[in-house]
Design a protein around this nucleic acid. Structure first.
Lengths: 194, 194
DNA sequence: TTCTGTCAATTGAACGTTCATTCGGTTACA
DNA sequence: TGTAACCGAATGAACGTTCAATTGACAGAA
């Protein structure tokens, strides 16, 4: 896999992302992806065996991206609370700066693709596993309430996700105040009560 | 609109729901909806001008259903906290008892249909407006923290939604304990801190 | 009660379009 | 000279939608 090849695949990924964000899965034919990528249809099929596989690989690509973003420059000397705020913040900021990825991921998460593709990404390094591990740590350190890990994870990510959605599609403005307000809500919800 | 007519439309709605839940929007052709509804394709087009319109009307139908469910038997003599727990509980229970509606609504919410159809439902009585009003009331009564209403709404519904998702698709079991755990998290997050 | 006219409800074969995918061929380059 | 990258017209299946024909319900006339 040389450099140029990786670049071409990224172009295809990015075009697909934009198109799906705007028109949804059914609204984006391979022909349009090819045109937007400045590539022949055949070229796409040279790299991906089918449209489905392309979309599933794109999902993995997005997971890798957000994972890299959130857990880059990890400073374990900070307090747990600080790190909690940073993780949540980064999660939101990433999606708000990459709204087409957000839109795509949300569509994917609520489509039959998800079940279809679990093998492809479940065992990979991904942001959800890492966040889960981070929340486990919080429980061990008695910073977070000791509760079912899935409730904990889904609560944190659920709040962050619907916050991002309200900003992208809705009437909410993206300000530091709003962001912190949201994170405080969920922090108050999950922290060890005093 | 006589009884039989309403019934036929409901059959079409329910079939569509099941099929979309299982196969997604693109995976459910009109021909299959017709077959599952025991009705000719032409009949569907007698009631709905297009597949898109059918799906949008189905969305409104679901909104009406959940709204009716949550706000039936409203007992305003209960404490605010009790009513908060009931609203959240009903929201979850409804979707967990109607998982195909949940799957459909989530797909719809993250598709271009949403923008396309805002006029059709924005001014109708719907569960989100009612929940928002209920949260406003909580702020007025100083039971909830005084914060941006959209952050408040999206936090509450975000947690409940991702909780339901974890149960439907994931590894979480539906028990009263889990449900209460989740609601307590968000209640601790949004209540007036003492 | 019976007949008749009207229109809504219903049917499904047929149509035209769109789309994912294929494949025979060309180019770039090692 | 061989191989990987690349091209895009052609293919065929699938799908949304149409429409001419049929049935059913029923109101009013005889």
């Amino acid at each position: 896999m040389n450099v140029q090849l990786t670049e071409k695949i990224e172009v295809i990924f990015k075009s697909t992302l934009e198109l799906i964000c705007e028109n949804g899965f059914h609204g984006t034919p391979m022909s349009q992806i090819a045109k937007k990528s400045d590539v022949a249809i055949g070229t796409i099929y040279h790299y991906f065996p089918s449209k489905d596989k392309l979309i599933i690989e794109l999902f993995c690509y997005c997971k890798r991206k957000i994972n890299a973003y959130i857990f880059a420059e990890w400073d374990s000397s900070l307090s747990y609370k600080s790190r909690f705020f940073i993780v949540m913040q980064k999660f939101c900021v990433f999606y708000l700066e990459n709204t087409d990825m957000f839109s795509f991921m949300e569509q994917f998460h609520n489509s039959p693709y998800l079940e279809m593709s679990k093998n492809s990404w479940e065992k990979q390094l991904n942001e959800e596993n890492n966040i889960m591990a981070f929340l486990y740590e919080g429980m061990r350190m008695a910073e977070l309430r000791s509760i079912n890990i899935h409730i904990l994870t889904s609560s944190c990510l659920g709040v962050a996700t619907s916050f991002a959605k309200k900003i992208i599609y809705g009437p909410l403005e993206f300000t530091d105040d709003n962001l912190n307000e949201m994170i405080e809500i969920i922090w108050n919800g999950v922290k060890q009560q005093d």
